[in-house]
Amino acid sequence: MPSPCDPQHAPVGDVGAALMMIDSRLKAISDNKTQPDAEQQALTDQITASLGPSGVDDLLDGACTLIYMFMQWLRMTYSAHGKDVIECVVPNLVATMRMMPRSVRPETIPTTAGLLIAAGTDLSPNLWRKQYGYWTEDEMNPLEATAFLLAEHINQLTDDRDFATRLIIEALSVADEG
């Protein structure tokens, strides 16, 4: 029986804007900046301020699409080595988030773990989350942190600080051609 959380029923959202936000965070960290570049932060703030309600929904869906795509790549990678993606990824990301109490409130960690598990079991993270109601403001930073930490995990696995971003850009290019 098909699941109502099947990815084929999920909106893709604005993957480009979500990727831009994650990529700017990745670059700031790789450049050893503790705070985002002021110009980059102003651009990010301007984009998010201009979104409006439907744009915010598209950005949320885009972030969930990134989480899904990253978890699918990780699932294939770990599976090729006889490992389970949930066992290898979820505990590490949850432990990392627990060390980020100013950005990720402890009560939001179960939701982010659920997003990871949904994506790791081939369910749409955004459809999985929406069955419990609309996103809360407290979940915004953890959602971004989840996508960021997955991208960083992929970059560390591949020893290439731009691999996760290229992975998504290449997937979007193929989708545009098809």
Results as ranks from 00 to 15, higher is better:
41 Q>D: 12
58 D>V: 03
87 E>S: 14
45 D>C: 02
43 L>N: 11
58 D>W: 03
40 Q>W: 02
43 L>F: 12
56 V>S: 05
75 R>K: 15
62 G>T: 10
92 N>K: 15
59 L>G: 08
41 Q>T: 07
76 M>H: 14
90 V>L: 05
61 D>V: 10
66 L>M: 07
48 T>D: 00
62 G>V: 05
69 M>L: 14
93 L>A: 13
61 D>Y: 12
65 T>A: 13
72 Q>H: 08
55 G>A: 04
47 I>L: 15
80 A>Y: 03
47 I>V: 14
91 P>R: 10
71 M>D: 00
47 I>S: 03
51 L>T: 06
93 L>S: 08
51 L>W: 09
80 A>L: 11
75 R>D: 05
97 M>Y: 02
58 D>F: 08
46 Q>L: 13
56 V>Y: 06
84 D>Q: 05
82 G>I: 09
57 D>F: 12
80 A>T: 06
42 A>V: 07
92 N>P: 06
45 D>V: 02
75 R>N: 08
84 D>P: 00
92 N>D: 15
89 V>Q: 00
53 P>A: 08
42 A>E: 09
91 P>Y: 04
60 L>M: 14
95 A>F: 01
58 D>M: 13
78 Y>Q: 04
54 S>D: 14
94 V>W: 00
49 A>R: 12
53 P>L: 06
62 G>Q: 05
68 Y>D: 10
97 M>D: 05
65 T>F: 03
55 G>V: 06
61 D>M: 09
56 V>M: 15
63 A>P: 02
83 K>T: 09
91 P>Q: 05
80 A>S: 14
90 V>P: 01
79 S>W: 11
50 S>K: 10
40 Q>K: 11
45 D>W: 08
53 P>R: 07
85 V>G: 02
85 V>Q: 06
47 I>K: 08
94 V>P: 00
82 G>S: 04
41 Q>R: 11
90 V>Y: 01
48 T>F: 07
79 S>H: 14
67 I>G: 01
46 Q>G: 14
87 E>C: 11
75 R>W: 02
95 A>D: 13
41 Q>C: 08
84 D>R: 05
51 L>I: 07
64 C>Q: 02
81 H>Q: 15
80 A>H: 03
75 R>H: 13
71 M>Q: 05
40 Q>P: 10
79 S>D: 13
46 Q>T: 13
